[in-house]
Amino acid sequence: MVVDVNYEERFWKILVRKDGELRSFKANFLINALGRSQFPHTKEKIYLDSLVGVAQFFQNVSDFAIDDRRTLIEATEVGWWYSAQLPRGKAIAVLMTDRDLLPVKPKDLEAYWKKSLLTTIYTIARVNFWHSANKLHIYDARTSYQDSFSGQQWLSVGDAAATYDPLSAQGIIKAISNGINAAHAIASSEFSHAVSFNDYNEALLSSFATYTTERHLYYDRERRWEHTSFWQRRQGNHKFLYA
């Protein structure tokens, strides 16, 4: 676990706690790969929505219970559902909606989740055969980006730089391409620091702008509930601009 990070005398000093002991490390370059966590030397991320996933895990799911092994996406009035089989006889069903649309109390949340499930056609058809394993879990799924992806002897990669809506299904592709671009930027910085990291920032901003355009196009196709809060927030004239 990272306890503290500081840049002093051209070196990064990292304090880590492992097995109850504090250990310190020094590095001349730092890669921020903290995912959705906040890196101490950057500003707060900029969020474009308040999307969360309310997930229920299922255990002891037999092959009979999952006749269709495909990942299923289904839109509803309050958001959209994701369901899929997991390894070792497990499965998952997730309601994707905005945090402020959810009840606060756990009992009310469970009732809300089940009520929304009843409005589905295909999701409930498969979930009816599954047996729930535990309570609901809420996961952050907001779209976000940093105002800067790099700085003095550091850069951010993956979800630490920008997070995408799960509907985009770009997580793995983004991580790989982002990692390649980061490696090129770091390697090139020895010869031209400003140019290499400017190119890196531009590449990430361009990718994020493309993603937000495609995200809007997908959400804009669903017109059955265009007057509800969830869908209104994602439809209409939304465009991500950067200088």
Rank of each mutant, 00 (worst) to 15 (best):
M1I: 11
M1W: 14
D4K: 10
V5L: 15
V5K: 14
E8Y: 15
F11H: 14
F11L: 11
K13L: 09
K18Q: 14
D19M: 07
L22W: 07
K26A: 03
K26M: 06
A27V: 02
I31V: 15
R36T: 13
R36F: 13
S37L: 06
F39S: 02
F39G: 01
T42Y: 08
K43R: 14
K43W: 08
E44C: 01
I46W: 08
L48K: 10
D49R: 10
V52Y: 06
V52W: 09
A55L: 13
F57Q: 07
Q59E: 15
Q59Y: 13
Q59K: 09
N60H: 12
N60P: 02
D63E: 15
D68K: 00
R70M: 08
R70C: 07
R70Y: 10
I73A: 12
Y82D: 03
S83I: 00
S83Q: 06
L86T: 02
P87H: 09
G89A: 03
G89Q: 10
G89S: 07
I92T: 03
I92A: 06
A93W: 06
L95T: 10
T97Y: 10
D98S: 13
L101S: 02
P103F: 10
V104D: 10
V104I: 14
K105R: 14
D108V: 13
L109E: 01
E110H: 12
W113G: 04
L117V: 04
I121T: 13
T123A: 05
R126T: 02
V127P: 02
V127G: 04
H131T: 10
N134E: 14
N134W: 14
I138T: 15
R142S: 12
S148P: 06
F149S: 07
F149C: 06
S150W: 07
G151D: 04
Q152W: 02
Q152M: 04
S156H: 09
S156W: 01
A160L: 01
A161I: 11
T163H: 02
T163E: 08
Y164S: 01
P166C: 01
L167A: 08
A169R: 00
A169P: 03
G171L: 07
G171K: 10
I172N: 04
A175D: 06
A175E: 05
N178P: 00
I180V: 14
N181L: 04
A185C: 12
A185F: 14
A187W: 09
S189C: 12
H193I: 04
V195H: 15
S196M: 12
D199C: 12
Y200F: 15
Y200I: 03
A203Q: 03
L205T: 02
L205R: 15
S207L: 08
Y211H: 15
T212S: 10
R221W: 13
R221I: 10
R221Q: 13
R223P: 06
W225Q: 00
T228N: 06
W231F: 09
W231T: 13
R233C: 05
R234L: 01
R234T: 08
Q235P: 06
H238K: 15
